[in-house]
Amino acid sequence: MTVQDIRAFNRFYTNVIGALDYSRHLYAPFTLTESRVLYELAHSPHTDAADLRAELSLDAGYLSRILNRFEQDGLIERAPSRRDPRRRQITLTARGRETAGLLAERADESVGALLATVPAADRPRLSEALHTVRTVLSQDTDGHRPRSEDVVLREPGPGDLGWIVQRNAALYAAEYDFNADYEGLVARIVADFAEDHDPHLERVWIAELDGRPVGCVMCVRDDAPGAARLRLLLVEPAARGLRIGDQLVSAVVEFARGVGYRDLVLWTNDILGAARRIYQRHGFVLVAEKPHRSFGQDLVGQDWRLDLHGSGE
């Protein structure tokens, strides 16, 4: 491997992305850096300027100018941080979320167009090659460290619904000693979705890292009028600490709000402390709890609710 090898690859790939019209279409009317800031805000609902500077390695003055422009254009709002009153929390407005969604849609379409030119038999080899490049060039003394920006949220592909059942059963058995009753419950939930769901009102997200699924969540219609239900939030142990749970819950909240649901509800158990903290960060409120015996364990079930029109999330 020589310097010329890498430069030759850079020229090749620059031509590839140029053919997709990235510079004139994909990010317009924003620069690449501005689009990257919008992406980070869309996937990190509780962040501030210091977080952004650290995550993106941006000059403080440059980032300040970007945020001032976003605020003037009605894309963001700033308020005192809940974690540190000396800091200003930055959140996307409804217009900001719409803009970030449009940019993400363009990116998906462009990369999808590129991937469509690759024969299906070659795609695993391409995925592995991309993973190798990213891993090798990201190594430091501790090896490759995945970042939250490496995580991709996508729709389920063939086999992914089965993966949801398998991983839920395996993880809850390992971490909470749940028996096969839980696997049966998850299998029924997933089967109901697969057999009969409205794609305009219900959706599943798979979190992918390095070409492998590492998390999931579902949004389905609830029995209560105007309400959606969040179900089966899961993050693989090896991928925890990358805000994947926050990204998945954010996706559900934005989707549910965007299609017109009034409330978002969920049921969980009090032993799932990490998940509860995620729900609380996103504005969910505990409305009821009740002891029960399920999955071979004595548990306390909890009902949580988020008012999608009253929440500033």
Rank of each mutant, 00 (worst) to 15 (best):
D5M: 03
I6H: 06
R7F: 07
L20G: 03
D21W: 01
Y22S: 04
L26W: 09
A28L: 06
F30V: 02
T33A: 08
L41F: 07
L41W: 06
P45K: 03
A50R: 10
A50C: 03
A50G: 04
L52W: 06
R53H: 01
A54Y: 06
L56D: 08
S57I: 02
D59I: 03
D59S: 07
A60F: 01
A60I: 02
S64Q: 10
R65Y: 07
R65W: 04
L67E: 13
F70S: 14
I76F: 09
I76Q: 07
S81T: 01
S81P: 02
R82Y: 04
D84L: 00
D84H: 00
R87L: 11
R87S: 12
R88A: 06
Q89P: 00
Q89E: 15
T91R: 15
L92P: 10
L92H: 09
L92K: 08
E98K: 11
A107S: 12
G112L: 12
A113L: 08
A113K: 04
L114Y: 14
A121H: 01
A121C: 00
P124E: 11
L126Q: 12
E128R: 15
V133P: 06
V133R: 12
R134Y: 14
V136G: 11
S138T: 06
D140F: 08
T141I: 10
H144W: 14
H144L: 13
R147H: 15
R147F: 11
S148E: 10
V151K: 07
R154H: 13
E155K: 12
P156N: 08
L161I: 00
W163A: 05
L171P: 00
Y172Q: 05
D177N: 13
D177H: 15
F178R: 06
N179Q: 02
Y182W: 14
E183H: 14
L185P: 01
V186I: 15
R188P: 09
V190D: 01
V190K: 02
V190W: 02
A191P: 00
D192R: 11
F193R: 02
E195I: 01
D196E: 12
P199C: 11
P199W: 10
L201Q: 09
E202T: 04
V204M: 02
L209Q: 05
G215K: 10
C216F: 01
V217Y: 08
V217K: 07
R221Y: 03
P225M: 10
G226A: 10
A227M: 12
L230E: 02
L234H: 03
V235F: 11
P237T: 02
P237M: 01
A238Y: 09
L242H: 08
G245C: 11
S250N: 13
A251E: 08
V253Q: 04
F255D: 04
F255N: 04
R257D: 13
G260F: 05
D263M: 10
L264Q: 13
V265E: 13
L272Y: 05
A274N: 05
A274T: 12
R276G: 07
R277M: 15
R277G: 13
Y279F: 13
G283P: 13
A288N: 13
K290F: 07
P291A: 11
P291V: 07
V300R: 15
D303W: 14
W304V: 04
L306D: 09
D307F: 08
L308Y: 04
G310K: 13
G312M: 11
